[in-house]
Design a protein around this nucleic acid. Structure first.
Length: 478
RNA sequence: UCCCCAGUAGCUCAGUCGGUAGAGCAGGCGGCUGUUAACCGCCUUGUCCGUGGUUCGAGUCCGCGCUGGGGAGCCA
C-alpha cells in the first residue's frame, strides 16, 4: 500500500472533488468491478471475527451500505479496534463480487483509516429507535435508515417541483420573507423587529413602529400569495417555493411553525383550471417519487406504512374526485354516521368530516370546492350565487388538507366589498388593489404544504420527521 | 390553547396488593464463526422526570409543574 502525505489524505476535498471518492450507490450498482477504489462513510455495524471483520459502511447516497471485509491480521486490521458503530472511516481495496449472500458487491480492504472515531456514548445503535427519541437527536438522525430515506426523497421531490413548473413555462419568483402584510387571515405572524424589547420607543402605552427598522410593523411571511398574484399579472404563470412561517400555537402532528410551501398562480385561469393544475402537479410528484426513489419507498412500505406503494400507484393512475361543499355536506348528512360535530350547511368541515370524505366516501384524494363565503378569505372569487366562493381544498387520507387554493376575486368593486366584510382595510393593500384597477384578469392559484406532501408520500405520520430540524411551539433546537 | 395518555439503565420496555428495581439490546472481557440486527458465556450501568403531600414504608397513591405522544381547534 502506498503511503500518503496529509495533503494526499484529503485530496478528495481539495483537488478534484470526487476523483477518489465514488459514492456507494454507484459502486453497488456497478456492472463490472471498477477494481481498486476508496470509499468514505459512516459505520452502521461491525461484526468482529478472529480472522476477519465486516463493516457496513453508509455514505448517505443510498439506503444500502457497502460491506467492507477486513483481514484482522492484514494492514487494514490495525485500525479495527477504533471502529465502532457510528465511526467515520475511509476504506480502500478491491471491489469484488461477494461470496456471501445478502449483497452483490463487497470491498476487500487493504487500507482502513478511522477519520472520526466514536465512543460508547454514541446514541445511535444498530437496533431500531423510536421516532420520538430520534427527534431529540436531530443532529444525528440523518445517519439512520429512516431519515436517510426521508431526506433523499425530500431532495428529489424538491427538484421535481421545479422541474414540473419549469417544463410548463412557469416563472419561479422569490416572494419576500419579511413582509408588512398581516391581513391575509392565514395565521399569526412572527414579529420581525430591531427594537429593544425592554425599552421600545413610544408613549408607554403604544409602540412607535415608525421608529422600527422598516418604519412599520413587520413579520415573517405567512404566504407569498399576494405578491405571487402581482407577478402572475405580468408573467401569466408563476410559482413560489420557499419557507413559510406561522406563529400559531398548534401542537399537532401536521403543523410546524416553519415549513415550505409551493404556491403557483396562473393568470387567465378559473377554479376548474386550478384544480386541474393541482391534480397534474400532485400526480407528477407521485410519479417522480415512484420512478426515482424505489428503494426508499420499499423501506417505507416495509417499516412505516404497509400498502404505501399500491396506494401511490393507484393515486397516480386514477382521477381525483371532485365535490362541491354543498354536495359534501349532503354526503355527510346522508351517510347516517354519528359525528361529534354536527354537519350543516354554512359550518366548517371538521377534521372528522374531511377524513370521512377522503377515507370512506372517496377512498383517495378529493377536491372540495365552492365553500360558503363567510368561511373563506377575502381574496377568493365570489360565485354567481352570491353566497359561495370559488375555493378548493384537496383532502387526502390520513394527512387531511394538503392543498388550499382558489380563483381570486379580480373585480375591484367586489373585492373591496369583500375586504370590508372580512374586516380588512383596503387602504393597507392599495398596491394589491392596483392590479384590479389596471389590467386585471381572472386568475387562480393554490398552496401545497411541501412537508404534508412528504408525509403523504412516505407514510411518515409526524411532520417533525420530514423536516430536517423542525420548529414547533417551544422547540427551536439545532 | 383545550382534552386524554405516558415518563423506570445509553436504547426498548417489565415491575403484581404500597414492602426498598429487573430483562433484552448497546457497552466491556472471553470464546466461536465468510459474517448479515451474527451467535455463546461472564461483567458494568439507575436523581425510577421534578416537586410537595399521604404513609412505618412510595417506582407504585394524591396535588402541582416540566417534557413527550395522541386527539381537537387554527391551517398547508
Amino acid at each position: 500500500m502506498q503511503s500518503r502525505s496529509p495533503v494526499m489524505e484529503n485530496r478528495s476535498c481539495s483537488a478534484g472533488w470526487r476523483q477518489s471518492r465514488p459514492r456507494i450507490r454507484a459502486l453497488l450498482a456497478a456492472e463490472q468491478s471498477p477494481g481498486h477504489v476508496a470509499v468514505e462513510g459512516w459505520v452502521r455495524t461491525v461484526r468482529h471475527g478472529k480472522g476477519v471483520a465486516f463493516l457496513a459502511v453508509n455514505d448517505g447516497s443510498c439506503l444500502a451500505s457497502l460491506q467492507i471485509v477486513v483481514d484482522t491480521a492484514g494492514p487494514a486490521g490495525r485500525a479495527l479496534e477504533r471502529v465502532g458503530t457510528g465511526a467515520c472511516v475511509r476504506a480502500a481495496g478491491r471491489l469484488i463480487v461477494s461470496p456471501g449472500s445478502g449483497q452483490r458487491w463487497e470491498l476487500v480492504a487493504d487500507e482502513l483509516v478511522v477519520l472520526g472515531p466514536v465512543d460508547a456514548a454514541y446514541p445511535l445503535q444498530k437496533k431500531r429507535h423510536g421516532p420520538e427519541f430520534l427527534r431529540e437527536i436531530a443532529h444525528l438522525r440523518p445517519r439512520t435508515n429512516l431519515f436517510g430515506a426521508v431526506f433523499r426523497v425530500r431532495s428529489k421531490l424538491a427538484f421535481a417541483v421545479h422541474r414540473f413548473f419549469q417544463e410548463r413555462g412557469f416563472l419561479y419568483v422569490h416572494t419576500p420573507i419579511i413582509t408588512a402584510n398581516d391581513c391575509e387571515g392565514a395565521g399569526e405572524m412572527f414579529r420581525v423587529t430591531t427594537l429593544d424589547p425592554l425599552r421600545p420607543p413610544g408613549d408607554g402605552t403604544q409602540i412607535a413602529w415608525r421608529d422600527d427598522f422598516f418604519g412599520e410593523k413587520t413579520g415573517l411571511t405567512v404566504s407569498g400569495q399576494l405578491e405571487g398574484e402581482l407577478f402572475a399579472m405580468a408573467f401569466a404563470d408563476i410559482y413560489t417555493f420557499g419557507p413559510t412561517f406561522r406563529a400559531e400555537n398548534s401542537n399537532t402532528s401536521r403543523h410546524a411553525a416553519e415549513f415550505w410551501m409551493i404556491e403557483p398562480e396562473m393568470a387567465f385561469a378559473d377554479l376548474a383550471a386550478d384544480c386541474a393544475l393541482a391534480e397534474e402537479f400532485f400526480r407528477f410528484l407521485i410519479q417522480a417519487v415512484l420512478a426515482e426513489c424505489p428503494e426508499e419507498l420499499g423501506f417505507f412500505e416495509q417499516h412505516v406504512a404497509p400498502g404505501l406503494i399500491a396506494r401511490l400507484e393507484a393515486v397516480a393512475a386514477a382521477a381525483f374526485a371532485r365535490m362541491s361543499y354543498t354536495e359534501a355536506v349532503g354526503a355527510l348528512q346522508r351517510s347516517g354516521r354519528e359525528f361529534s360535530f354536527p354537519v350543516q350547511w354554512g359550518g366548517d368541515l371538521q377534521s372528522e368530516h374531511e377524513r370521512f370524505l377522503s377515507e370512506q366516501v372517496v377512498g383517495g384524494p378529493l377536491f372540495v370546492t365552492d365553500y360558503p363565503a363567510e368561511l373563506k378569505a377575502f381574496y377568493m372569487r365570489l360565485n354567481d350565487d352570491g353566497r359561495t366562493v370559488a375555493a378548493m381544498d384537496l383532502l387526502v387520507p390520513r394527512v387531511g388538507e394538503i392543498i388550499g387554493g382558489s380563483q381570486r376575486e379580480e373585480r375591484l368593486e367586489v373585492l373591496e366589498r369583500r375586504m370590508r366584510a372580512c374586516g380588512v382595510d383596503p387602504a393597507g393593500l392599495d398596491w394589491y388593489l392596483d392590479t384590479r384597477r389596471w389590467g386585471s384578469c381572472p386568475h387562480a392559484g393554490f398552496g401545497l404544504g411541501f412537508e404534508r406532501f412528504l408525509m403523504y408520500v412516505t407514510g411518515v405520520e409526524n411532520i417533525r420527521d420530514v423536516i430536517p430540524f423542525p420548529r414547533t411551539p417551544g422547540n427551536a433546537r439545532f
